[in-house]
Design a protein around this nucleic acid. Structure first.
Length: 463
RNA sequence: GGCGGCGUGGCCGAGUGGUUCAGGCAGGGGCCUGCAAAGCCCCGUACGGCGGUUCGAUUCCGCCCGCCGCCUCCA
């Protein structure tokens, strides 16, 4: 049974399933006004791994993740580029999915857009008004947080301290500085929708309430996102649900930062690396491995060194996969424990699940996988093909459970130049002409090949 | 100011009151190899500082130092 840290309680508790055998999860997606950076990549990978692990465990998972396509930054960015907000969001949504595909992140079952839910947001705000917890001010409609029991639960701060820290807002007629906007009244040049309070657009915190409840229903199991969403975004989502008397998310899961030189990576600090930058420089699987090497709640430091480190680890896995000719188990979708043909080390799988069940201890799970790699190679060196094959196959299975496909296919390079050099090198080695053989190897390496001599002769492959 | 997190061997990064352990990367030695590469075997006696609790603390408590985050848009 999976136990996960719950931000609402601060404790690691069992993930409840509203319906036995099924898990409903909602993960806050991106605001598509710019290209995704490493932080977006991390949260996407973390929740992808959580989702895949639930699937691996034999559960049905409904995964909803939204696209925020109406928001201040979108309007500003579009204006500065002289294009419409829709043109901007269409573009960056396409960029988003491209990056997700490159990372091997499964597409959500549903990816609702805020702009498709405006009427339902208006309905929700109306109900909050009817209940007397929302009020109209000069520039919009606000939720009165003082009327929401337990406000501050996720922030884990008493209301007073939140209030003390709140910045004075522009709207002079807000009842409390903590009250947050549900509906923004129209300003010139902005996209607007009709509402009982005049034309305008929804505030950010309402869309996720509406979309999660609409697509997953009341009392869904898990709501996730990066740590910075805890306050105010998730706090405010929860406040609306509470004010409506509706059962909201039962488990709150938040992942830690990507840092650079120990500092939070963010667009406002300007120290971010775009996902695209990383993916053109490095194997996307290396970033998944890098993310998995740390606990999801810890900060991860992404530097050229840590990326190289992860690449080396990945190469070790691939090398083993090649040695044993492992198939790509992810070619046909996520893997489910017990549904994959082959001989596996049941104890190792059990240890893996123990690690994962313990608040998604991916570092521990990976340690077990690397142990199996060593076992597989050692057994093969000893000539125990059965044990070796089982250990190697288990590595493939468990890596796949984490969404990490291994490159096990034997190289079928047909490059004529390379093949010719290999043939000449094999001849030279047969004649014990080591000088020529070394020279040919240098040529191959200069062409970018990895050269390995085995009992059957020289093999080359791309690194 | 309020709230919270972190400080582990060259680097990354787990974990635990005490005989042996994470794991990865890098490094050293060895085996294998014509030489390599890959692989295997062996090697590092680390836990910010000062006290306290204890037979014994990296692990528990207190204080201190340093770093980071949230309280404002932010993944």
């Amino acid at each position: 049974m999976l136990r996960l840290h719950d931000t609402a309680t601060g404790e690691v508790t069992e993930l409840r399933h509203r319906t036995p055998g099924q898990v409903s999860m909602y993960v806050c997606g991106p605001t598509v006004y710019d290209a995704p950076h490493l932080g977006h990549g991390r949260f996407s990978l973390v929740f992808d791994v959580l989702r895949r692990y639930l699937l691996f465990s034999g559960l049905d998972v409904t995964y909803v993740s939204n696209i925020t396509d109406i928001e201040d930054k979108i309007i500003e960015r579009a204006a500065s580029r002289g294009i419409t907000p829709t043109e901007l969001t269409d573009h960056f949504e396409a960029v988003w999915w491209e990056a997700m595909d490159a990372l091997g992140v499964l597409r959500p079952d549903e990816a609702p857009h805020a702009t498709d839910y405006v009427d339902r947001m208006v309905a929700l705000i109306t109900e909050l008004m009817n209940r007397g917890v929302a009020y109209e001010a000069s520039d919009g409609v606000y939720l009165s947080v003082l009327d929401v029991p337990g406000y501050g639960l996720l922030a884990r701060q008493p209301l007073d301290s939140l209030r003390a820290g709140a910045r004075v807002e522009s709207a002079a007629d807000k009842r409390s500085p903590l009250d947050f906007v549900l509906w923004k009244k129209a300003k010139p040049g902005e996209p607007t929708w009709e509402s009982p309070w005049g034309r305008g657009r929804p505030g950010w915190h309402t869309e996720c309430v509406v979309m999660s409840l609409d697509l997953l229903g009341d009392g869904f199991d898990l709501h996730g996102g990066a740590i910075d969403l805890i306050f105010p975004h998730h706090e405010n989502e929860r406040a609306q649900a509470v004010a409506l008397g509706r059962d909201f998310a039962h488990h709150w899961v938040h992942n830690g930062w990507v840092t650079v030189d120990g500092e939070k990576m963010s667009k406002s600090l300007g120290n971010f690396t775009s996902l695209d930058d990383l993916l053109t420089r490095s194997d996307a699987r290396a970033y998944r491995l890098l993310v998995l090497r740390s606990h999801y709640r810890s900060p991860i430091e992404v530097t050229p060194e840590t990326v190289t480190d992860a690449e080396s680890g990945l190469a070790r896995l691939d090398e083993m996969a090649r040695r044993f000719g492992l198939p790509d188990l992810l070619a046909s979708g996520p893997v489910v424990d017990g549904a994959v043909a082959g001989s596996f080390d049941a104890e190792a799988v059990s240890r893996f699940r123990d690690r994962m069940d313990d608040d998604l201890d991916t570092p521990g799970a990976l340690a077990g996988i690397f142990d199996l790699v060593r076992q597989a190679n050692a057994s093969a060196d000893d000539g125990d093909e059965v044990a070796a094959g089982r250990a190697a196959g288990t590595v493939g299975l468990l890596a796949a459970a984490l969404g990490l496909p291994l490159r096990g296919e034997v190289s079928t390079e047909t490059d004529p130049v390379g093949a010719d050099l290999v043939r000449r090198r094999d001849e030279a080695r047969e004649h014990r002409d080591w000088t020529l053989a070394d020279q040919l190897r240098d040529e191959l390496m200069a062409l970018g090949w990895v050269v390995e001599d085995g009992p059957e002769g020289t093999r080359i492959r791309r690194p």
